[in-house]
Design a protein around this nucleic acid. Structure first.
Lengths: 128, 128, 128, 128
DNA sequence: GTGGTCTAGACCACC
DNA sequence: GTGGTCTAGACCACA
């Protein structure tokens, strides 16, 4: 799985990393039980500090995407990711809200917006 | 127009302020040419720092939502907000992408996701 | 509130710090809304690294004991700590289980054990 | 005696093993003088490393729970486990203290806490 | 070899 | 001033 980081971006590196791993899981490039690189090797491959990788891994662990074994290393959660619940639904609403507000202001039609979402959804489900 | 800030939130205050003004424009509570409070009075009303309000206003100006006249004060852009362009389209895609990735992982169906977007859209267009 | 760390202990410093802050809350030395020292000043006072303090604070935040404001600093959760729930009940059981197992082996009577617990409880509730 | 290890747990495997053997002694499933499997066979049965079993055994020996003879193998201490002493009493206090502190914060009543301890005690003494 | 902990020191965003 | 991020490099526990 290929990971591209923009070290100049305002988005923290660990966030970029985290999102790309989540995207990898969504695309089924990473499946339940698959191993992930060790913090050290991934940090070395990406040319970043191992603590940065570790921070991304810790958050992914905390959100239930991965398991971190002290010795065996890191694997995608074999039980799958916790499904949507109320807390997630309210969080996702809070995240989408301002995006749609701005789109409305900029005269993006609902149709266009939904179409964009469908495209992105399609991108993830193509390989299923 | 009522503005509610969460000073405890991880989201910077200036971002919250900016988003709520954009939401106000989207909901037509604020229309082209409408005046906005001065930096000073808004800061005082909200009990926050001048710089914080100023930062929000500067970014809104930068993105074409408002105009700041030295004398006339602050007004919603009378020419309307710049419509969607390619740059915005690519930016919006980048912002939605990780949200959808996580939703896919959490087994949110495309239908549910689109339905949520429709609801939020409806919230803005009700008063049109 | 006085904090004593044992830098030689096997228990990680951030865990010791975390537990002492929880104890402070339990003893009402720290009350809802009370401010805690900044990571830098506490680190300096204790003679440890600010990242170590930060780790303790982050975990306390994650467990709902404190809130961390970007600017205002750190405060004890004004809404109080999340009450016991099933997850906590099962966790606490898992933590006490081996302690009692060993006590049974060492001929600590149930009475003595419960008496010890009562004493510790009393220590926290004396100032209430 | 059945031993269940959680290889995913944060708790080191050797600690889990140690605690389960102590629990076995507390439950009288293992009695004074009873033989324990050899390091080699137990490691093989549990599918874990020799060193891991060895570390658990060494600590159990150190704390007086078992004896390790070069020839006769491993047995539960025929003289019984050393009874509670001051050192143990202070150690147990240190271990319970943070648990009760957190319980106080989370509004677990003393009654509920003591009741939980009684239940766990009962679990060990049922077979006596 | 793995991750966990700790230190030291840097720059940035926010207010 | 605050916390957030990132780097660099060290030692330890675990298996």
């Amino acid at each position: 799985m290929y990971i591209a980081l923009d070290l100049e971006s305002e988005e923290p590196i660990y966030t970029q990393l985290k999102n790309q791993i989540i995207a990898g899981i969504a695309k089924k490039e990473l499946r339940s039980g698959d191993p992930l690189p060790s913090v050290r090797s991934l940090a070395s491959d990406l040319g970043i500090n191992l603590h940065t990788v570790n921070k991304a891994y810790q958050q992914l662990k905390q959100e239930g995407f991965i398991l971190i074994h002290r010795q065996k290393g890191v694997v995608v959660n074999p039980d799958g990711v916790p499904s949507v619940d109320e807390a997630y639904w309210s969080e996702i609403t809070k995240r989408i809200h301002p995006i749609i507000a701005e789109s409305v202001c900029r005269n993006v039609t609902e149709q266009d917006f939904l179409q964009l979402c469908r495209q992105i959804y399609a991108e993830f489900q193509s390989k299923e």
